Lab assay of single mutants.
Amino acid sequence: MTEYKLVVVGAGGVGKSALTIQLIQNHFVDEYDPTIEDSYRKQVVIDGETCLLDILDTAGQEEYSAMRDQYMRTGEGFLCVFAINNTKSFEDIHHYREQIKRVKDSEDVPMVLVGNKCDLPSRTVDTKQAQDLARSYGIPFIETSAKTRQGVDDAFYTLVREIRKHKEKMSKDGKKKKKKSKTKCVIM
């Protein structure tokens, strides 16, 4: 069974824990209790493949930012979460993405942009803004509501699919490099 290491990042209060708990335990946590770091595991079937999701729910508070490099190193894919009623959390996505790329030393890291709290009427981040940002990053965008469960499975499952595509691409690139290195030079 394939294991996928997913990391949920975003500013404090955007609903990272609520999304994760909704996926794992099928219930909505409405009281806000700032996370330092929590880890969850769940076995699911995605596109006919049974897999184990190892999900790291991270601290959004700035005082825990020193811990970010460590979990970013171990993560295979990242859910970059903002709240649709919090423009600052949307603007912060850029910083999370840049930090992930720096730590992973790669421009090509599996990510999904997630606009959470889409059940709320007080939207300050337009869907088109988020779609445009995701398009500019070359990553999928999904709106979710941890409260109603809308888009929750889709967000995590899409990230797994992005990781699969990335692994497939990397193995193809690896095979191309191996083929090239088999060419021999004969000096007579």
Score class of each variant (00 low, 15 high):
Thr2Met: 15
Thr2His: 09
Tyr4Asp: 12
Leu6Glu: 02
Leu6Met: 06
Val7Ile: 10
Val7Gln: 05
Val7Pro: 01
Val7Tyr: 08
Val8Ser: 02
Val8Trp: 01
Val9Pro: 04
Gly10Cys: 04
Gly10Arg: 00
Gly10Met: 01
Ala11Lys: 14
Ala11Cys: 13
Gly12Glu: 11
Gly12Ala: 10
Gly13Asp: 14
Gly13Glu: 12
Gly15Thr: 03
Ala18Cys: 05
Ala18Trp: 01
Leu19Ser: 14
Thr20Leu: 04
Thr20Glu: 01
Thr20Phe: 00
Ile21Thr: 03
Gln22Pro: 00
Gln22Leu: 02
Gln22Arg: 12
Gln22Met: 04
Leu23Gln: 15
Leu23Arg: 14
Ile24Cys: 05
Ile24Val: 05
Gln25Met: 14
Asn26Lys: 13
Phe28Asp: 00
Val29Gln: 05
Val29Asp: 13
Asp30Gln: 09
Asp30Glu: 12
Asp30Pro: 08
Asp30Leu: 10
Glu31Pro: 03
Tyr32Gln: 02
Tyr32Ala: 01
Tyr32Phe: 03
Tyr32Glu: 01
Asp33Val: 02
Asp33Asn: 02
Asp33Arg: 00
Thr35Cys: 00
Thr35Glu: 00
Thr35Arg: 00
Ile36Asp: 00
Ile36Glu: 00
Ile36Thr: 01
Glu37Arg: 00
Glu37Cys: 00
Ser39Met: 02
Tyr40Trp: 02
Arg41Trp: 02
Arg41Met: 04
Arg41Cys: 05
Arg41Val: 09
Lys42Tyr: 07
Val45Trp: 05
Val45Gly: 12
Val45Glu: 13
Ile46Phe: 10
Asp47Glu: 08
Asp47Gly: 10
Asp47Asn: 10
Gly48Phe: 03
Gly48Glu: 08
Glu49Lys: 14
Glu49Leu: 03
Glu49Phe: 05
Thr50Cys: 08
Thr50Ser: 11
Thr50Arg: 11
Cys51Ile: 11
Cys51Ser: 08
Cys51Tyr: 11
Leu52Met: 15
Leu53Ser: 08
Leu53Val: 11
Asp54His: 01
Asp54Phe: 01
Asp54Leu: 01
Leu56Gln: 06
Leu56Thr: 12
Asp57Cys: 00
Thr58Trp: 01
Thr58Cys: 07
Thr58Gly: 02
Ala59Cys: 06
Ala59Arg: 02
Ala59Gln: 03
Gly60His: 02
Gln61Leu: 08
Glu62Ile: 05
Glu63Ser: 07
Glu63Cys: 08
Tyr64Asn: 15
Tyr64Ala: 11
Ser65Arg: 04
Ala66Glu: 10
Ala66Cys: 12
Ala66Pro: 08
Ala66Trp: 10
Ala66Gly: 12
Arg68Trp: 05
Arg68Gly: 14
Arg68Phe: 12
Arg68Tyr: 13
Asp69Arg: 04
Asp69Phe: 02
Asp69His: 09
Asp69Lys: 03
Asp69Cys: 03
Gln70Asp: 13
Gln70Lys: 03
Gln70His: 12
Met72His: 06
Met72Cys: 04
Arg73Trp: 07
Thr74Trp: 08
Thr74Pro: 12
Thr74Gly: 13
Gly75Ile: 11
Gly75Trp: 02
Glu76Gln: 09
Glu76Phe: 08
Phe78Met: 13
Phe78Asn: 00
Phe78Cys: 02
Leu79Val: 08
Leu79Arg: 00
Cys80Ser: 03
Cys80Asn: 04
Cys80Val: 11
Cys80Glu: 01
Cys80Ile: 14
Val81Gly: 04
Val81Phe: 14
Phe82Glu: 03
Ala83Lys: 11
Ala83Met: 08
Ala83Glu: 15
Ala83Trp: 01
Ile84Arg: 09
Asn86Val: 03
Lys88Gly: 07
Lys88Ala: 10
Ser89Cys: 09
Phe90Trp: 11
Glu91Leu: 13
Asp92Phe: 11
Asp92His: 03
His94Ala: 14
His95Pro: 14
Tyr96Trp: 13
Arg97Tyr: 11
Glu98His: 03
Glu98Ile: 01
Glu98Ala: 03
Ile100His: 14
Ile100Thr: 08
Ile100Gly: 03
Lys101Ile: 08
Lys101Val: 12
Arg102Met: 06
Arg102Pro: 02
Val103Glu: 15
Lys104Tyr: 14
Lys104Asn: 14
Lys104Val: 13
Lys104Gly: 11
Asp105Phe: 13
Asp105Ser: 14
Asp105Cys: 09
Asp105Gly: 12
Ser106Gly: 14
Ser106Tyr: 09
Glu107Ser: 09
Asp108Leu: 05
Asp108Thr: 07
Asp108Ser: 07
Val109Gly: 02
Val109His: 02
Pro110Asp: 01
Met111Cys: 06
Val112Trp: 02
Val112Thr: 04
Leu113Phe: 11
Val114Ser: 01
Val114Pro: 00
Gly115Ser: 08
Gly115Phe: 13
Lys117Glu: 14
Lys117Pro: 01
Lys117Asn: 14
Lys117Phe: 14
Lys117Ile: 15
Cys118Met: 12
Asp119Cys: 07
Asp119Lys: 05
Ser122Thr: 10
Ser122Asp: 12
Arg123His: 11
Arg123Ile: 07
Thr124Cys: 09
Thr124Arg: 07
Thr124Glu: 11
Val125Asp: 08
Asp126Asn: 06
Asp126Gln: 06
Asp126Val: 05
Thr127Trp: 05
Thr127His: 05
Thr127Cys: 06
Lys128Val: 04
Gln129Phe: 14
Gln129Asp: 15
Gln129Thr: 09
Ala130Ser: 07
Ala130Leu: 13
Ala130Pro: 10
Gln131Phe: 10
Leu133Pro: 06
Leu133Asn: 14
Ala134Asp: 04
Ala134Ser: 10
Arg135Thr: 08
Arg135Trp: 09
Arg135Asn: 12
Ser136His: 13
Ser136Met: 14
Tyr137Met: 12
Tyr137Leu: 11
Tyr137Trp: 06
Ile139Lys: 02
Phe141Asp: 03
Ile142Tyr: 05
Ile142Arg: 13
Ile142His: 06
Glu143Gly: 09
Ala146Tyr: 01
Thr148Ser: 12
Arg149Gly: 07
Arg149Asn: 15
Arg149Ile: 03
Gly151Lys: 09
Val152His: 11
Val152Thr: 10
Val152Trp: 15
Asp153Gly: 06
Asp153Phe: 07
Asp154Trp: 05
Asp154Arg: 05
Asp154Gln: 07
Asp154Asn: 07
Phe156Glu: 01
Phe156Ile: 10
Thr158Lys: 09
Thr158Pro: 05
Thr158Asp: 03
Thr158His: 11
Leu159Asn: 01
Leu159Phe: 02
Leu159Gly: 03
Leu159Gln: 12
Val160Lys: 11
Val160Leu: 06
Val160Thr: 06
Val160Met: 11
Val160Gly: 05
Arg161Phe: 01
Glu162Arg: 07
Arg164Ile: 13
Arg164Val: 06
Arg164Cys: 12
His166Gln: 09
Lys167Ala: 05
Glu168Asn: 04
Glu168Lys: 03
Glu168Gly: 10
Lys169Phe: 14
Lys169Thr: 12
Lys172Pro: 12
Lys172Leu: 06
Gly174Ser: 09
Gly174Ile: 08
Gly174Glu: 13
Lys176Gln: 10
Lys176Met: 13
Lys176His: 09
Lys177Phe: 08
Lys177Asp: 10
Lys177Asn: 12
Lys177Gln: 12
Lys177Trp: 05
Ser181Asn: 11
Ser181Phe: 12
Thr183Asp: 09
Thr183Trp: 03
Thr183His: 07
Thr183Leu: 11
Thr183Met: 09
Lys184Cys: 11
Lys184Ala: 04
Lys184Arg: 04
Lys184Gln: 10
Lys184Phe: 01
Cys185Val: 13
Cys185Gly: 11
Val186Met: 04
Val186Tyr: 15
Val186Gly: 08
Val186Asn: 12
Val186Ala: 11
Val186His: 13
Val186Lys: 04
Met188Leu: 03
Met188Arg: 12
Met188Lys: 11
